[in-house]
Design a protein around this nucleic acid. Structure first.
Lengths: 200, 200, 200, 200
DNA sequence: TATGAATGAGGTTTCATTCAT
DNA sequence: CATGAATGAAACCTCATTCAT
């Protein structure tokens, strides 16, 4: 990993634990193993590290969303197979590539901290934690409705419900202490249980 | 308001916006209108302000819980009237005296920020945002079940669902930007709508 | 003991350990058990405590010296008895009432610390640790010479030697760590041994 | 001289006059001509300056002692010439390289101040002002005894006496006010006079 | 790329002191 | 006598940053 990447990695870990302001350049450099003056070769200033992280996060998110968009455009004439497919979307995209992804998970934590006093962060947080997921779930449930799993009239209520479960479980299990494999597994299992038990 | 209370008030507002570490004694004193040295007459050190806030919060919470405990012991032989009563518990205690309460709301925000690196905060956050509310809802729904609103078998699922809605809405509307009267009203309305629409 | 005396007592203990500047009003008041503002009822300011101590010390010293002066004027026609008497002077005055006296001992320690940067203290230190003792020993040895213990010609050399022993032992055993009874006893014994062994 | 050395030099001068605690970082930096923040580039904290001085002093001392040890091993078959040699040891090592040495002299003053409340300092002070010198004088006088200057039986008494003279004169003339060339000269002369006058 | 050396601004805290009660 | 409340100054130290090498 390049020095620049190492800096971003260490910075994100620290920012997401203690908040941007509470982390010092010294803290970061100490962990990376470079002198403070060296950091300024790679970044204009402290803010620049944060900005780079945000940019990288936005790119990651829009990558995910565009992937998802392509998927949605595939004609749904795929019978049963695609049923599994649609909820796999949630597993693969929402979980594996987003909530469970180390980079994204830490970015979410950082956003949660910063959104209280940073409007840019608030907007991003709102979008990536509430708006986007809702839209994704909506698409998924609409696809499921097309497959006859349930009626179109039920879609909105189901989406709301699913979104509520996912959000609560996320805050409770994924944005708390360290994100271990055990926690991910437990989270996934509980989501699937709720999906089957209360969604039909 | 005494100087000490003013300090705690200002400190909480700032801590809950920017996090404990990012707020300086200078910031607090500037807002309160005292010299920094004066603050140290009232508090041993910066940490002491935080500790005092936490103590006050814990007292507030345990006050609420004990009140609630007394309520639960009142025999439920009150027909329809008490139905309204049980969900009033949620309105009065969970909302008006907790989520909407200016002090508690800011303490929750502060806990959210600090829990990422402070184990004491994490435990308190887990308890006051997930464990305690769940237990409260459980009591309320058990009372409702006794009144025949729904079967006992349904209680657990309903509690889970209600908790999920409440939590998600709380994070989305009450722990975001400023807590206005409009937001509180909207929140209450939406909760009631969900309650009636999806809980029967 | 009056509050004022308690303050002086505590102050002297602290000053003689850590030096005047390094001891704070807070330290003193904390130990005495009063608030800082109370101290200013008894003393004009911090310097005033030190000045009071110095005044008290000077009074003590001049009391000792005038006592000693009276003794010296007593005609020495007392044969053997007065021999013991003259060296009792050293025991009673130099040791019991000066070097071993808790107040004086601590004042000497304080002077040692302060004399490095305080001319008033340097003068007092020079006088009470070198000049005065030398003069006292001189008187004692002159009395001893009159009794024929040794010749007048030897007096000066004996005084120099005795002074050197006393001073060295004092710095080594009495101005070091806590002044315990054991240390005093050991000191006295060693002085007497040297006196007998090397002074004839 | 490097900035770091300049800091240590200035710090020692100030510490040895007013005591470690009473000297502020500001005082030191003002004299050195740097900003306070610069000092923290060279030293971890204030204590680190003191520790560095102590380390340097201990190194210096052990350098002297090991030199002295080598000397002692040289066979004494050198007749009269070596007589002068043995007491030159005292002149060169105890005086020129220790008591008169600007660095050591100031360190001794510092130790005297600090030993009253700092056990590490007390031990160092005891060793370098009483124990080590006694051992050195013992070796010198034993060498002189071998040359027949006096009998072996007299050695211990002579060492005690010499040590007492040296110590007293040191406290009186070398650890008092500024250490001028005149004072050094006077001190040396007086020591030599005593040596010749009372030691035969 | 990386570092050594420096800095102004600001951080938390302690200092001696005052003054009304 | 004693305290509660306040303060300006100064203590030690950390901050992000710069710049020559």
């Amino acid at each position: 990993m390049s020095t620049k990447d190492k800096i971003m990695d260490v910075a994100l870990h620290m920012f997401s634990e203690r908040g941007y302001e509470a982390v010092s350049i010294r803290d970061i450099c100490g962990e990376v193993g470079i002198k403070e003056s060296t950091l300024y070769y790679h970044f204009k200033n402290k803010k620049d590290i944060l900005d780079s992280l945000i940019t990288r996060f936005k790119d990651h998110i829009s990558g995910l969303l565009s992937h998802l968009g392509e998927m949605a455009n595939i004609p749904s004439g795929k019978s049963k197979k695609s049923n599994a497919g649609t909820s796999d979307i949630v597993d693969n995209y929402m979980m594996d590539s987003y909530l469970f992804d180390p980079f994204c998970n830490l970015m979410i934590r950082l956003m949660i901290i910063e959104q209280f006093h940073n409007e840019e962060m608030r907007a991003l947080y709102e979008k990536t934690m509430f708006t986007d997921p809702y839209d994704i779930y909506l698409k998924v449930f609409q696809a499921l409705a097309l497959q006859g799993t349930f009626t179109e009239a039920q879609v909105e209520a189901y989406v709301r419900r699913y979104h509520a479960y996912m959000t609560t479980l996320t805050f409770r299990y994924l944005l708390n202490g360290e994100l271990t494999e055990a926690r991910k597994k437990a989270y996934k299992k509980e989501v699937h249980a709720l999906m089957k038990g209360e969604m039909i």
